[in-house]
Amino acid sequence: MAEGQRRDFYAWFWRAPLLVWQLLFFVVPLAFMFVMSFWLVKNYRMTPAFAFDNWAKMLGWNIFWSSYAYTMALAVAATILASVLAFPAAYGLAFRVTDTTRRWALFFLIIPFFTSYLVRVYAWQVVLAGNGVISAMLGWVGLGPISLLNTPIGTLVGYLTLSFPLVVILQTISLASIDKTLIEAAHNMGCSPLRTVFSVIIPAAKVGLIVAGLFCFILSFGDFVSPYYLGGSKPPTLSIMIVDSTKSGQQWPRAAVIAVVMILSLLAIAFTAVKFAYRRRG
């Protein structure tokens, strides 16, 4: 066997498990879900068919589109909030602390993932309720009692619980990887600290910052737990609509339509974001 052929075989041997895994557990189920969106449900049983009924029903249903807009708005709000709130923390960890402190901080940011997300959301119910801590604090300053539970704010708190540590970690890694000489050069040339952030640091870390925001968006857009347990399912997001469809009348094909629309939306947004991240300044 020639040297080149041996190298090709070796490369493919190690690539194969990942490809097989992706094919079996991503591509095939995705294709099946797409096919299922054309099936019909008769007497609680799914019947293979090639009908556009589910697509026509869902895409022509006002509730679907209002739910889509609401889900999108909440995910965008969570992404902006998480990105803006995480940046000062990430900046501090990247530039203002020692390596040891940064490592410990990143370790502590990972710790929330050790506990179940559902448990953390249930804990938030106690905090956000009308007789909870936040309401009591607002009461002291004459603004309460206010219940944030079963509101869009409650949902946003849940989304940030899920994604905020991850956004801080990704932003920190991204900022810490910046060539420090660029920052020094900016300072030497009389650039103010604020301008250095906006003209040097953010453009240099653009890819990482966008990827961090993208992760937040993806996690929030598809989340079921927070809108249901902290938002009171009022109004329902797309993930809640999926669950409702499967629960009632076994409408898996309609749920498949919603899922396909969600995946297409995420793909479009992810590609746009990545394209923007790698776009060169003209």
Binding site: I63, S66, S67, S233, P235, P236, M241, D244, S248, G249
Partner: peptide, 9 residues
Amino acid sequence: NDFWSEYKG
């Protein structure tokens, strides 16, 4: 069920 979904939304 459809009405219930509309009501919720």
